[in-house]
Amino acid sequence: MRTITIHVPEELYGAYQASAEESNRSAAELIRNAMEEYFQTHLARTGSIFDAPAADAGRILAPLSSEDDLLDEMLP
């Protein structure tokens, strides 16, 4: 594992420290988990659609409003 140095606002780091204390974990562990989640969500999205996590299946991308008419979009 590689050690890195980052600069974050005191308030943000304080929130990680408080959450770490509550969950009996270290702030470093929470930050590593957050970085991993960001990587999985935003950076590792290459490959086939079939490689996507099952949790993404059926996820609503944009909710429909009462003004949306899907039939009009499907018909020429």
Rank of each mutant, 00 (worst) to 15 (best):
Y16N: 02
F50V: 09
D72L: 08
S48F: 03
E67Q: 14
D56K: 09
E37R: 12
G14Q: 03
A27K: 09
E73P: 01
R45I: 06
L64H: 15
A15M: 05
F39Q: 09
A34Y: 06
F39R: 13
G58L: 03
Y16E: 01
L61W: 10
A57C: 04
Y38I: 11
F39S: 06
E29I: 00
E21K: 15
T3E: 11
Y13H: 05
L30M: 00
D51F: 04
M35S: 06
R59K: 13
I60C: 13
T41K: 10
Q40L: 09
R32F: 00
D69S: 10
I49Y: 14
E29V: 00
I6D: 10
S23F: 12
D68A: 13
E11Q: 04
R32S: 04
E37S: 12
R32M: 03
P63N: 14
M35Y: 08
T41F: 04
L70K: 07
A57E: 08
A52K: 14
E10Y: 05
D68K: 05
R25I: 06
N24H: 14
E67S: 13
P76S: 13
M1R: 11
N24Q: 13
E37C: 08
L30S: 01
P76E: 14
S65R: 14
A28E: 05
P63I: 14
E10I: 05
A28D: 03
S26L: 12
L75W: 11
Q40D: 07
A28V: 00
I6N: 09
L30N: 00
V8Q: 10
A34N: 06
Y16T: 02
T41N: 07
E73M: 13
E22V: 12
S23G: 04
P9D: 10
E29D: 00
S66A: 14
A20L: 13
S23M: 13
D72I: 06
G58K: 02
Q40V: 02
D56M: 09
D68G: 08
F39G: 04
A15E: 05
A55R: 02
A54R: 11
A15F: 02
R25S: 11
T5A: 15
E36N: 11
A20F: 07
E21S: 15
P53C: 02
T46F: 01
L30K: 00
R2F: 09
E10F: 00
L30G: 00
H42N: 10
D69F: 07
S65I: 08
L75N: 09
G58N: 03
L71E: 10
A20Y: 06
I31A: 05
R25D: 06
E37P: 00
G14T: 00
G47D: 01
A54C: 08
R59C: 05
R45Q: 07
A52Q: 12
F39I: 07
P63H: 14
T46W: 01
A62Q: 15
A55V: 03
A28R: 05
R25P: 03
G47Y: 01
Y16K: 03
P76Y: 12
E21W: 10
E22P: 02
E11H: 03
S48L: 14
P53D: 13
L43W: 03
E10R: 08
P76W: 09
Q17D: 09
L64W: 14
F39M: 08
D56C: 04
A52N: 13
L71Q: 10
M1N: 11
A52Y: 11
A52G: 08
A55W: 00
M1A: 11
L12D: 02
A27P: 02
A54W: 00
